[in-house]
Every structure is written in structure tokens, then in C-alpha cells.
Design a binder for these strands. Structure first.
Length: 355
DNA sequence: CAGTCGTGGGC
DNA sequence: TGCCCAAGACT
């Protein structure tokens, strides 16, 4: 790409944005800024998550917790249950911790410096830059997956990710304009989300087509290249659905960190690679009962492994009731919606209910 | 620093 | 159907 194109690129992109700007729940009217609290909340939710998925969660959170003060005052359990289904639950834990830190350390006002933002839990390089640009209109370079793709194509960077990150970030930073930095950041992401898409990019309608080296070479759709990913192993286990006569099921709380940390779950055996050893798994039932295996099972894929859960079911007896472990509790059917149940556990419950 | 950490939609 | 990947952060 020539210097001439690079110099004109921000103006072209902003002109395109003014014509094609999308209305999003967290996006202010043209010329207005979204309050830092809403920028932060939306950016945390949008980490590795699509706009369509985030929408309803964002509305529910803002309605229930309109300010960072309100969010900071909420119990973590309430935030986890409201986050249930959105995934990456460390985000919800960090959201809670960050809100409390903003109250305690910054008097309830979000900081606008890179160092102060990076010191907050859940805010990394991208999110700090996005908050500075969108909430404070500072010329910070916010590079997410969309922007990586746009830049890799503009400059035809053929080095596979993640090795190309340094070069991409350097190129991206050079382009950030001093004026309308917030609009520019959102325009770059919008362009990546709607025009410069991973597959079948719409180069013919792209406002940056004249300056795009990948398009000139005919390799836009091949970029960015990525290093091959490791194969996902499969883990297997048995989930134990214990029902009471009124239909309530037994739930327990997972450990506070790690996979599905702090969330509720249907008790289960260990999830181990290799064949399911049924005799071993059944020893890990939460209570002694007349466990019966249900037909079929539940399959679920996490970021780095597949999970296959067989499902055992039993009706609780008075004897069993006396032996509940601490951290376990009954949950009636109508209360399930309010619990911090991750999707995989909702699948298990649905499977048991359908049998 | 490579591994960990969810889920849903698109193709 | 299985694989891709999405407005990444943390350890």
C-alpha cells in the first residue's frame, strides 16, 4: 500500500462509517459518547462473543444494574447466574472484581489512562484501548480479531498468526487518526464484521479496496493465515441427576476458579480422557441411590476438549436426603432459570427431563 | 508463553 | 456433520 493510500485511509473509513454505521445497543447516537460503564460492560461481553449473542445479555445487565455502583453492590452469584450461557465465566468473575475496584480505587469513575485500565481485572490490551477510544475519544489503537484481519489484508501480511501480531499491531497503530478516534475504532471493527469478513469478503463494496494489497494480489480470502491448531481430545464421564418427588433436582457449586468456575452443576464423575469406566464412575455418585442409566447422553464441546456425558437418574430417598454434601442444594424446576447453570448442564437436565 | 477458558451461528 | 471463529485475558 502506498503512503498516499495510508494517509487517506482513516478519512475514507470514517466516511464509510457515517453512511453505514450500525445501530447497536451500546452505541450512542452520532456525535455522542457512550458512558464508560456501558462501553466497558459491552466490551467485556463482546470478548470472543458475537454481537447477536451479546445483545439480550447486555440489555438485561443494564436494566438490572444501571451503574457500576449497582453492579459492584451485587453478589457474585447474581452476576454469574445472569451471565449463565454466555461462556468464559472468568469474565463474569472479573467483571464483579473490576466493578468493586473502580468503586474502591477510582471513586466510581472509570480511569482513562492505559496503565490504570490495564491494572483492572479482565481488561487487557485490546479492551483498554477500546475503552479509551470509544468512551474517551482518545487515539488508542484497539486491535481485535476484526482489525487483525483488515490489517493483514491491507498490507498482505502472510506471516501466520499469532506470529504476525507484532507487525499487525504496528501497522494498525500508524493509522489511528487524532480526530474521531472512537468512531475510527468502531469503524474498523464494523468493516471487519460486515465487509472484510473471514470468508467471502465483499471486496467490491469495500471503502478501502483501492489501497488493499491482498485484494490486488487476489489473496484476500486467504488472509490472515493461521498456525494449525491442536486436535481436541474427548473426555467422558457420568452426570448424576437426582430428582425429588416434586421434580426438584440436586445441584452443587463448582470450585471458584478454573473450568466453569463458581457456576452450579449437576453432580458428575470425573471427566477423563479415554473410555468411560462405568464401574469407577458410578462410585462417584453424590449419594447412594438406585441409579439407572438413561439412553443416549449429552455431547458438548469446550474450547480445548470434547465432552461426552452419560446420564444416570435416581429418585431421592429419605436416607439419601440425610447424606447431602455441603455445597449441594435442591433446585425446583421453576428456579432453574435463576441459577448459574452453564449450557452443558442445562443440556444434561433437558436430557434427563425428556426421558 | 503455550495452555486454559464457552457458546452459538454459519457454512 | 464437523469445523471455523467471534469486539481476548490470564497464567
Amino acid at each position: 500500500m502506498t503512503m498516499t493510500h495510508a494517509a487517506r485511509l482513516p478519512a475514507k473509513l470514517l466516511a464509510w462509517y457515517d453512511r453505514h454505521r450500525r445501530t447497536l445497543p451500546w452505541r450512542a447516537m452520532p456525535g455522542k459518547r457512550t458512558p464508560p460503564y456501558l462501553v466497558w460492560l459491552s466490551e467485556i461481553m463482546l470478548q470472543q462473543t458475537t454481537v447477536a449473542t451479546v445483545g439480550d445479555y447486555f440489555h438485561r445487565f443494564v436494566k438490572r444494574w444501571p451503574t457500576v455502583e449497582a453492579l459492584a453492590a451485587a453478589p457474585l452469584d447474581d452476576i454469574l447466574s445472569a451471565w449463565a450461557g454466555l461462556g468464559y465465566y472468568a469474565r463474569a468473575r472479573n467483571l464483579h472484581a473490576c466493578a468493586r475496584t473502580v468503586i474502591e480505587r477510582h471513586g466510581g469513575q472509570f480511569p482513562d489512562s492505559e496503565a490504570d485500565l490495564l491494572a483492572l481485572p479482565g481488561i487487557g490490551r485490546y479492551t483498554a484501548a477500546a475503552i479509551r477510544a470509544i468512551a474517551f475519544d482518545q487515539p488508542a489503537s484497539a486491535v481485535d480479531g476484526n482489525v487483525e484481519r483488515v490489517i493483514a489484508r491491507l498490507y498482505a501480511i502472510e506471516t501466520p498468526l499469532p506470529d504476525a501480531k507484532a507487525e499487525i499491531h504496528a501497522r494498525a497503530a500508524e493509522l489511528v487518526p487524532q480526530q474521531r478516534a472512537g468512531d475510527y475504532a468502531q469503524a474498523m471493527m464494523d468493516l471487519g464484521a460486515t465487509v472484510c469478513t473471514p470468508r467471502s469478503p465483499s471486496c467490491v463494496i469495500c471503502p478501502l479496496m483501492d489501497g488493499c494489497e491482498a485484494r490486488r494480489r487476489g489473496i484476500a480470502e486467504e488472509l490472515p493465515r493461521r498456525a494449525p491448531k491442536a486436535e481436541k481430545p474427548t473426555r467422558r464421564g457420568v452426570a448424576f441427576v437426582l430428582s425429588r418427588k416434586d421434580g426438584a433436582v440436586l445441584l452443587r457449586k463448582r470450585p471458584p476458579r478454573g473450568l466453569l468456575g463458581g457456576m452450579d452443576e449437576i453432580p458428575s464423575s470425573d471427566w477423563r480422557e479415554g473410555e468411560l469406566l462405568m464401574a469407577e464412575a458410578l462410585k462417584q455418585a453424590p449419594v447412594p441411590a438406585n441409579w439407572k442409566m438413561l439412553d443416549g447422553g449429552v455431547r458438548h464441546t469446550f474450547t480445548h476438549f470434547h465432552l461426552e456425558l452419560a446420564v444416570a437418574h435416581a429418585i431421592a430417598t429419605t436416607a439419601g436426603l440425610a447424606k447431602l454434601a455441603p455445597g449441594s442444594a435442591w433446585c425446583t424446576i421453576d428456579q432453574l432459570d435463576e441459577r448459574a447453570l452453564p449450557t452443558v448442564m442445562r443440556k444434561v437436565i433437558a436430557h434427563a427431563m425428556s426421558r
